[in-house]
Design a binder for these strands. Structure first.
Lengths: 312, 312
DNA sequence: AGTAGCCATAGATCGAGGCTATCAAACTTG
DNA sequence: CAAGTTTGATAGCCTCGATCTATGGCTACT
């Protein structure tokens, strides 16, 4: 036994050589002398008992094992960097850029409340906002273009962790003179035969609302798919049908004196769960927990059917 | 900048303390003196600039950051161990125990050919075989109870890598006096209205064959679901219906003089792809490539409709 | 053949990490 | 309540290994 274990320095040396395919340049990039680098790689080969690099004076190639080990070494070094990053983040919680993606059926209703709160409590945090649909957000999250996404759960994406934030009932928006207008505890089946206006394809809220319609036996007015909830509500005001809104949208979208009425469903009403998603490997888990608390604190009061999900 | 990076020794020290919650015992476990361990942890805290461990003389606790970093440190150390493992495996290819799981609709037809080949060429390899259905194999693979699984692709399991091995056509087995008996280039639609015997639930081959039946408009004789292809073929011989077999099974299951006939489908015939699956993080990727080559070499000749998938 | 480029080896130096011995604090016990 | 025990931190010394400079040897191109 007693095989000495590879050193981080040795791994860095190997990765450097793999990157530059040249000992001299790799040494320069690592700020060490060329002999140091040579001996580091040699030592690694000795401890592992395998040749990793094919050297001729003309070219430097990796062996098959070398390639495999370089891949793993990169992972190790990256993970060590992450450790340092975690420590730095812990020293200065919720500071710096936070690239947050938000779905369009949440952004206009939550952000106006969240941003001031956040600015007040964590002035060092700089939110970089992006509004896009779930599929886009998850792709960008995975690719590292976003740090966080605020969207409907669950998504069951491997490698992505989710923090539930709140549950939001769906409500019915109708013209004021509609039979269902202003009702409370409307059963879902009460939608049977109604013309329902929905968002265009790709919105997760479209899919959820469509599920409700299917269960109730309502028709979608498919020729009128809209790009935003705002547009839909205007169409409802124009008498083209009725629609479903997430509770948080009511305050903004349904004003007084526009000939609109809001009806609530019988409990348990159809609803969706909103939460944060981040890469499971993110170095800023603690930050995201703090941010989650801020979002919960920024929720509108009880006049809406919003229930924050208790944090673990 | 010039922040020194954490050392592997320091990470080992931290993990040791986290495991034992006691400096003295952790030091003993790591074969170093207690002061050495103390100073290693202290040095790590200094380089990271964060307190990781709460020490009183009575108890040792991790801080929140400490917990996070311990988790990552474990990952790093594990990855380093893996690197050593990769090297060892590369020095002695295809040696030692290989825990291989095989689905029941492949095992009896491929293993009798594979085992002798393997024994001849890689006498140091010890196959530990296990026969189970796909879901079980994948769970055991993920949990580390298996190294490899031989099954139908694709499975699209995150964290699991697959090596395609060969494509295998399905054939029709009927009683000798059946109208379809011995046919070649039978269209799938030719199954319309037939009574087809299938495996019981949980077999992937059942699902695949059922797809064919659905497409063709054939009926499953659902009261007669069998536990093995052998049993099914006997039932066909008894005149209870017909069945589909994967091509590799024909040689073993359909003997002469049993009143059975084999018909082939019109190309492209329904078929399945068989391959190997392993944890993407496995340290023995090279071994699995070699083993894949052996399986391809062990395939029966062209009398069956088996086409090896060319290796990358 | 000469030369330039490139990696390996040799020998010297310096610091990180290891050990022993000892201290300080806190809980236990007679 | 005082002495003892347990446990982690500190001090001081030592050793080994990582790094440096200088040099050697090989290959390819001119």
């Amino acid at each position: 036994m007693a095989t000495p274990q590879p050193t981080l320095t040795q791994l860095r040396a190997l990765v450097g050589v793999a990157d530059h395919r040249h000992f001299g340049r790799a040494a320069a990039a690592l700020h060490v002398s060329q002999p140091t680098l040579s001996s580091a790689v040699a030592a690694l080969e000795r401890t592992l008992g395998v040749q990793l690099v094919e050297r001729t004076t003309r070219s430097v190639l990796l062996t098959a094992v070398g390639e495999q080990i370089v891949t793993r070494a990169r992972g190790v070094l990256g993970a060590v960097d992450d450790i340092a990053e975690v420590a730095v983040r812990a020293r200065a919680p919720l500071t710096g850029d936070i690239r947050l993606g938000v779905i369009p059926t949440v952004a206009p209703y939550l952000l106006p409340r969240l941003l001031p709160t956040l600015r007040g409590r964590w002035p060092q945090a700089r939110l970089r906002l992006r509004e896009a649909q779930t599929a886009t957000l998850l792709a960008e999250l995975r690719g590292g273009a976003l740090d966080l996404a605020l969207l409907a759960l669950p998504n069951d994406e491997p490698g992505i962790t989710e923090i539930p934030l709140y549950d939001e009932d769906f409500v019915l928006v109708t013209p004021a003179e509609h039979p269902l207008a202003g009702g409370s505890a409307v059963p879902v089946a009460g939608l049977a035969g109604q013309d329902v206006l929905l968002l265009e394809d790709g919105h997760c809220f479209r899919a959820q609302a469509l599920d409700v319609c299917r269960e109730a036996g309502a028709r979608e007015r498919a020729t009128l798919r809209a790009a935003s909830l705002s547009t839909i509500v205007q169409m409802v005001a124009g008498g083209l049908g009725l629609t479903l809104l997430p509770a948080a949208a009511v305050g903004v979208e349904v004003g007084e004196g526009r000939g609109l009425a809001v009806a609530t469903f019988r409990r348990p009403a159809p609803h969706r769960r909103i939460g944060l998603a981040y890469r499971a490997t993110s170095a800023r888990v603690t930050d995201w927990g703090l941010l989650a608390a801020e979002v919960r604190a920024a929720l509108p009061g009880t006049e809406l059917d919003l229930s924050p999900v208790p944090s673990v």
